[in-house]
Amino acid sequence: MKTRKMKDNRLSRIILHNVGLGILAFIWLIPIIWLLFTSFSANSEMNTSTFFPKEWSIKYYIKLFQPDTVSQFPQWFINTFVVACATCIISTMFVLMVAYATSIMRFPMRKPLMNMAVILNLFPGMLAMIAVYFVLKTFNLTNSYAGLIMVYSASSGLGYLIAKGFFDTVPRALCEAARIDGCSEARIFFQMVIPMSRPIVVYTVISSFLVPWMDFVYAKMILNAGISSKYTVAIGLYKMLDKMLINDYFTQFCAGGILVSIPISILFMIMQKFYVEGITGGAVKG
């Protein structure tokens, strides 16, 4: 009797379920939709009276590519891209190196180092910011991309836990066998473990690549010479909302936000698969 009842309800339930999802997704997307629509407005200032723009136009997208003293979007995009690539390479290396050392290898300092990492992660990063600034200044690295890259990647080793969780799932016996065969640790790392860990490598690459696109606090502090052409996308767009500029640049801000979001969204879509796999892998061993 029970099964019959379930069958009767199945179609309507499926529809209900998917409609529910649709409503949720719609709520989630409202602000994004608003961002998208506003970016196609023909007015430069924020529209507070209607949801849809009164007049449609793509002129603020075009303006984004016609740099003026405030908006130099193409330049910002290139700057951010360069910083992101460098950050991505260094961070990925650091994370994977630390994860491998703490997961696969056994050495006496392992536990103390891991405990240190836990403790360091508890300090509010904002607090250390001003000191980081002076450390960079000492090395003459403020207002340089090298400084920015260092800030984004130097401490990335602390975020090794997810990758470690994944490496923990690599069968220990496999590594032992390789060691007995005379493989050096370096070969096990590069030729065995890394190729087996594609999901987590991809996840680490993408998430470290995204850091410079998202951060504005550190970038604002380090690139403090006020030279607009040196900004990253994040500070450039953030400054457009200055109270003196917001009326002239709000729509451009939206358009810029959309243009940045498109590549990031694509990366995220790729990443979600690997992310889920990475987590899955990390959790299997329990």
């Binding site: 602000p31 994004i32 994040a234 801000f253 936000g257 979001s261």
Partner: peptide, 8 residues
């Protein structure tokens, strides 16, 4: 929604 940078 998480792909759009937070500051935006």
């Amino acid at each position: 929604t998480i792909a759009v940078p937070q500051f935006v």
